[in-house]
Amino acid sequence: MASLKELKGRITSVKSTQKITKAKKMVAAAKLRKAQAAAEAARPYAERLEGVVASLATKVGTADSAPRLLSGTGKDDHHLLVVLNSDRGLAGAFNANIVKAARDKAYELQAAGKKVSFFLVGRKGRPVINRLFPGQIIEHYETTGIRNVGFDEARDVSAQVSDMYEAGAFDVAHLFYSKFRSALLQEATGQQIIPVPAPAAVEEIGGATVEYEPDEEAILADLLPRNVTIQIFKGLLENAASEQGASMTAMDNATRNAGDLINRLTVEYNRSRQAAITTELVEIISGAEAL
């Protein structure tokens, strides 16, 4: 059995671990509220843009003159997986889940004979993907120095992806991130971002003829890259909220585990102490009797 001193030391160390996890949980809860508010504030723009793009896309249709971002390259050979991860751990299986979703998709595509490349955002996914798919990471976007990932980053990523698309580096792009359902539930999801998925047809509003300046196609060509950007932006924001949610849950569990461990150690400590006292008493009594 461990000595009293050892037990005491372990209790102290678990207690200080518990203090850290508790603090981390509190921080995550506060950050979660902020991230959630940011995700909510971004919704109006995305909704309106999607509405406009949908109505324009139905009008322009899949004519030959339609922008390539909408109609695609006509091929389906080379897929790019854009994987959004965070830079920090201590968030349970948050990063692992996103990587897993991307990995499954990659296996599926490879089994179908497609070529797969990766575009990584954030630090955490890199080691795993590099091990599973060596040499297939073609681009990596660092977010280490950025406190709050925002629209500027989304625009940078989107610009890089669009340039690669224009240069013919890939045919289809998918985006992987974690959807924020609630503080307890985050869902790793993948969605196609290039070519822009054909939106559901929207009904003409009141039959009024809309005037365009310049024409429909020029506007669409202008808005489609923005739509890609906004999808990535949405992914980044959802990811930020999910990360904090996952972190909060993980830290809550850790705090509770530490509490259980402290209780167990305390019981053990008290028992050993009692045993030591009893032994001493027995020694004294038997010593007195021997006299």
Partner: peptide, 19 residues
């Protein structure tokens, strides 16, 4: 400031889209 020239919008303007 429309891409092809400035325009002003009052109430009841005809449906219009512009960059």
């Amino acid at each position: 400031p429309g891409s092809e020239g400035d325009f002003s919008v009052l109430e009841g303007h005809a449906p219009f889209m512009a960059t």
